[in-house]
């Protein structure tokens, strides 16, 4: 391998890792604060992608940032509504299994409603000339699109961290997460915070969906695949840690890029294997709770 090839590989690993981290970000937030395994997370990702695809189909000249914002808002609204009408009620049973299974029903309803409405075809998000654009530094040619995608992912992470650690809302969110009962006593609006968190995490999922659809194609049935990646990222990152999610995404992205380079038919085999081995190793050495 030449130095140039190596650089390209690292670049690809970074950008894919950024996407994987983004896929997990919303789930990490949701699990970290609400303590519910949100099985509809993969569907929010798909919905985000389809919202963007739909917006561009309707208004071909819509600037990309607006498309992104639209997808974010649409999914945030969906996430908030689902939390208010369904998940919050299930959480009232104080049984995490019931809450998890409710989100599972929700996932199925969302998936098949979309398939019914938009058809089961695979679709991609066309980004015009950006798709082919590239630039060359020191004799190495890199794509612009992956770089934009990585930029969006990193910016989202930065904004999320700022929101959680630097704002009043973030303080309230952390308080509700740490000790919901006490937070309620001192006047934190627990239910409202839950809804804000659900909206935020669905919105983050939507951004991930847009990035995913720009890179490859997506169908209404892609949700489970996204969910699995999200799970891996979140579990590896240590449930609910924002920085951990970023690192885990990068690890898995790197693994995939390098294994595909070494073995054409790698698929996700080594990604899953690395995840599994690391997980079991950490459990064995007592590093999981």
């Amino acid at each position: 391998m030449t130095a140039a090839q190596f650089t390209v590989l690292i670049f690809q690993g970074l950008t894919l890792g950024g996407l994987y981290a983004m896929i997990g970000a919303g789930l990490a937030l949701n699990y970290g604060i609400l303590k519910v395994l949100q099985l509809a997370h993969g569907e929010y990702i798909t919905y985000g992608a389809f919202a963007a695809i739909g917006a561009i189909a309707l208004f071909p000249n819509l600037p990309f940032p607006l498309v992104l914002l639209l997808a974010f808002l649409a999914c945030a609204l969906l996430g908030a509504a689902a939390q208010l009408l369904i998940v919050e009620r299930a959480m009232a049973h104080r049984n995490e299994v019931v809450a998890m299974l409710v989100t599972f029903g929700l996932a199925v309803v969302l998936r098949d409603s979309l398939a019914e409405f938009a058809g089961a075809d695979l679709r991609g998000l066309s980004v015009g000339s950006l798709a082919q654009a590239n630039f060359t530094i020191a004799g190495i040619t890199l794509g612009v699109l992956p770089l934009v995608s990585l930029g969006i992912a990193l910016t989202s992470f930065l904004l999320l961290a700022l929101l959680i650690f630097r704002t009043r809302l973030g303080m309230e969110i952390r308080a509700v997460s740490d000790m919901p009962d006490i937070a309620a006593l001192v006047g934190a609006r627990v239910k409202r915070t839950h809804i804000v968190v659900a909206a935020l995490s669905a919105g983050l999922a939507a951004i991930a969906g847009v990035l995913l659809a720009m890179r490859s194609s997506i169908s209404p049935y892609s949700g489970l695949d996204s969910l699995l990646i999200a799970f891996e990222v979140v579990v590896l990152g240590g449930l609910g840690s924002i920085r951990g999610v970023l690192l885990a995404g990068l690890l898995l992205g790197m693994t995939q890029v390098i294994s595909t380079w070494a073995d054409n038919s790698a698929g996700l085999f080594y990604v899953h294997l690395v995840f599994f081995v690391v997980l079991v190793f950490r459990a064995k050495t007592g590093k999981l709770q």
């Binding site: 409710v102 929700l106 199925v108 998936r111 098949d112 398939a115």
Partner: peptide, 20 residues
């Protein structure tokens, strides 16, 4: 098939919320 799964999903949610 999609309509069937939508009904199943709604059924699961309803059962879990009303009869956990």
């Amino acid at each position: 098939g999609d309509q069937y799964w939508i009904i199943m999903g709604v059924l699961a949610i309803a059962v879990l919320l009303l009869l956990p």
